[in-house]
């Protein structure tokens, strides 16, 4: 978001937002490393992939993916409220149209938490079938890619808590507050897009 035009003669890109995007582009390279591991092993061991990929519960993961994508939508609605400098709801909890940034971010948090919990349940099921992290090359890369992504989602959830908590600290919802909310949404959308790519590679691409 642009910086506050009333606070100076020059409007320029918000430094925090640009910095966040530059950092996220380096995060992209982090995930590039994971994708490189995944596709190299997949090319080396097609037999292993043919054996393991059918063991995955694709509809389950697809629903989980959908939950994460929807959480991004709620997050964006929260961003619109943050940009309008409206931290909390002006009506009752049932009047969704009058929600502020806080309510939307709490909803985003709940959806994100459901996604991570769903992934934990999936891990538990796979481990109970004997597919542990050290079982074979496929399982290693599966837990490495989805796990490091899961850690990113969890970090995003913590960021949401901190940003929601911040709204209680000041009487006036400032631009600095709104900037924090907006850049957290950038991170969330980025992690969401990375998951879509991971989901397509791991679950849909097959052997």
């Amino acid at each position: 978001m642009p910086s506050d035009p009333v606070m100076g003669p020059v409007t320029r890109p918000n430094m925090v937002s640009v910095g966040t995007i530059v950092w996220l582009s380096s995060e992209l390279m982090f995930f590039a490393g994971l994708f490189a591991i995944f596709f190299t092993l997949r090319a080396m061991r097609p037999d292993l992939w043919a054996e393991r990929v059918p063991m995955l519960d694709v509809p389950y993961a697809a629903i989980n993916t959908l939950i994460l994508v929807i959480s991004s939508v709620w997050c964006q609605l929260g961003v619109m409220k943050a940009e309008a400098l409206q931290p909390s709801r002006t009506g009752s909890l049932l009047q969704v149209g009058k929600w502020g940034m806080r309510e939307w971010y709490v909803l985003t948090y709940i959806f994100g938490a459901v996604f991570v919990s769903g992934q934990v349940a999936e891990y538990a099921k796979l481990v109970s079938e004997g597919i542990t992290m050290s079982a074979d090359a496929w399982s290693s890369v599966f837990y490495l890619t989805t796990g490091l992504h899961g850690i990113h989602v969890t970090a995003g959830l913590i960021a949401f808590l901190l940003i929601i908590g911040r709204t209680f600290t000041t009487r006036h919802y400032s631009h600095a507050q709104a900037t924090g909310a907006v850049v957290t949404s950038y991170y969330w959308h980025f992690v969401d897009v990375v998951w879509i790519a991971l989901f397509a590679s791991i679950y849909l691409l097959g052997a």
């Binding site: 995007i21 530059v22 996220l24 582009s25 380096s26 992209l28 390279m29 995930f31 590039a32 490393g33 994708f35 490189a36 596709f39 190299t40 997949r42 090319a43």
Partner: peptide
């Protein structure tokens, strides 16, 4: 047949395109 380079280079393009 060599995926590390392909993915790293194309996602480098993503790095520039994103910013």
């Amino acid at each position: 047949t060599e995926w590390v380079g392909v993915i790293a280079l194309i996602l480098c393009a993503g790095l520039g395109a994103m910013i």
